[in-house]
Amino acid sequence: MKYIISALAANKSGVLTRVAALFGRRGYNIESLSACATETAEFSRMTIVLDGDDYVLGQMMKQMDKLIDVKKIRRVDEDAVLRELLLIKVRTNAATRSEVFEISQIFRANVVDASPEATVLELTGKPTKLDGFVNMLLPYGVMELARTGVTAISRGKTRLLDEEDYKEKI
């Protein structure tokens, strides 16, 4: 089963290494991890997609919570806003280009680069939507693709920063 976790961590060098190293040595199966600076200079925000069960989820949250640099950690609610960005380079020629454009329109993807032999498309959405789009393009020849991994934010006025600590520190 897949779980999505949001975390706020100290925005300094080495923090991502600590988190990634923890996953490595404890054997947690991570599908994606996206990290970036936030509205507060102090913190960076991570969104982690974990493949596992309730036991692994519990262990991972507790172990992450023990990292001094991790300030807040929460499992993302079912109804949270989830988004991922895809950039994909598809083999196109005069004959196939219009078909690829048509598929892009269905998915509301943008053409960000076009050349005689290839087209680069951009799509934002839920991971399942991105999967569907990639599947549709496979027959034309996917030359390469890049996905950001899921990023997530809760609905309504609540902020991760204001939430109570997952458990007392340390």
Partner: peptide
């Protein structure tokens, strides 16, 4: 050394 000791220290 701070990198080497990441998995064997509290911090």
């Amino acid at each position: 050394i701070s990198g080497i000791t990441v998995p064997i220290t509290k911090h």
